[in-house]
Amino acid sequence: MFISIVIPTINEEQCIGHLLYYLQNHPLKSHFEVIVVDGGSIDQTKEIVKTYDVTLHESSRTSRAHQMNTGAGLAKGEVLYFVHADVQLVDSFVQDIQDSIDHGIPSGCYRFKFNTPKNPLLHINGFFTRFPFKWCRGGDQTLFIKKDDFSRIGGFDERYVIMEDYEILDRLKKHQVPFKVIPKSVKVSSRKYDENSYLKVQLTNLKAMRMYKRGEDPKLIREYYCNAINGKYKKDRLFLGN
Rank of each mutant, 00 (worst) to 15 (best):
residue 28 L to R: 13
residue 29 K to L: 06
residue 29 K to N: 15
residue 32 F to Q: 09
residue 33 E to L: 10
residue 34 V to N: 03
residue 34 V to L: 10
residue 34 V to R: 05
residue 35 I to R: 02
residue 35 I to N: 04
residue 35 I to M: 02
residue 36 V to G: 14
residue 39 G to A: 01
residue 40 G to L: 05
residue 41 S to Q: 02
residue 41 S to C: 10
residue 43 D to E: 01
residue 43 D to N: 08
residue 46 K to E: 12
residue 46 K to Y: 00
residue 47 E to K: 14
residue 47 E to Q: 06
residue 47 E to M: 07
residue 48 I to R: 06
residue 49 V to C: 06
residue 49 V to S: 02
residue 51 T to D: 13
residue 51 T to Y: 06
residue 52 Y to N: 01
residue 52 Y to G: 03
residue 53 D to C: 04
residue 54 V to W: 04
residue 54 V to C: 11
residue 55 T to F: 12
residue 55 T to E: 12
residue 56 L to P: 10
residue 56 L to Y: 06
residue 58 E to W: 00
residue 60 S to T: 02
residue 61 R to M: 04
residue 65 A to M: 07
residue 65 A to C: 05
residue 66 H to Y: 14
residue 68 M to T: 06
residue 68 M to F: 00
residue 71 G to C: 05
residue 73 G to H: 12
residue 73 G to A: 08
residue 74 L to Q: 04
residue 74 L to C: 11
residue 75 A to L: 05
residue 76 K to Y: 10
residue 76 K to M: 13
residue 77 G to I: 07
residue 78 E to Y: 09
residue 79 V to Y: 04
residue 79 V to E: 12
residue 83 V to Q: 00
residue 84 H to D: 08
residue 84 H to Q: 01
residue 85 A to D: 01
residue 85 A to P: 10
residue 86 D to I: 05
residue 88 Q to P: 00
residue 88 Q to F: 04
residue 88 Q to A: 12
residue 89 L to G: 13
residue 90 V to H: 12
residue 90 V to I: 14
residue 92 S to E: 07
residue 92 S to R: 12
residue 92 S to N: 01
residue 92 S to Y: 08
residue 92 S to P: 08
residue 92 S to G: 06
residue 92 S to W: 06
residue 93 F to A: 14
residue 95 Q to D: 11
residue 95 Q to E: 14
residue 96 D to N: 08
residue 97 I to G: 15
residue 97 I to K: 12
residue 98 Q to M: 09
residue 98 Q to S: 05
residue 99 D to L: 01
residue 99 D to S: 06
residue 100 S to K: 01
residue 101 I to S: 09
residue 102 D to K: 02
residue 103 H to P: 14
residue 104 G to M: 09
residue 105 I to L: 15
residue 106 P to Y: 00
residue 107 S to Q: 11
residue 107 S to F: 05
residue 108 G to H: 04
residue 109 C to K: 03
residue 110 Y to L: 02
residue 112 F to S: 03
residue 113 K to D: 09
residue 114 F to M: 04
residue 114 F to V: 11
residue 115 N to L: 13
residue 116 T to A: 11
residue 117 P to R: 15
residue 118 K to P: 03
residue 119 N to E: 13
residue 121 L to F: 04
residue 124 I to F: 12
residue 127 F to Q: 00
residue 127 F to A: 06
residue 129 T to C: 01
residue 129 T to M: 07
residue 129 T to A: 00
residue 130 R to M: 06
residue 130 R to A: 09
residue 131 F to W: 15
residue 131 F to E: 08
residue 131 F to M: 10
residue 132 P to N: 03
residue 133 F to W: 11
residue 133 F to Q: 12
residue 133 F to A: 06
residue 135 W to K: 03
residue 136 C to M: 10
residue 137 R to I: 07
residue 137 R to W: 15
residue 138 G to R: 15
residue 138 G to E: 13
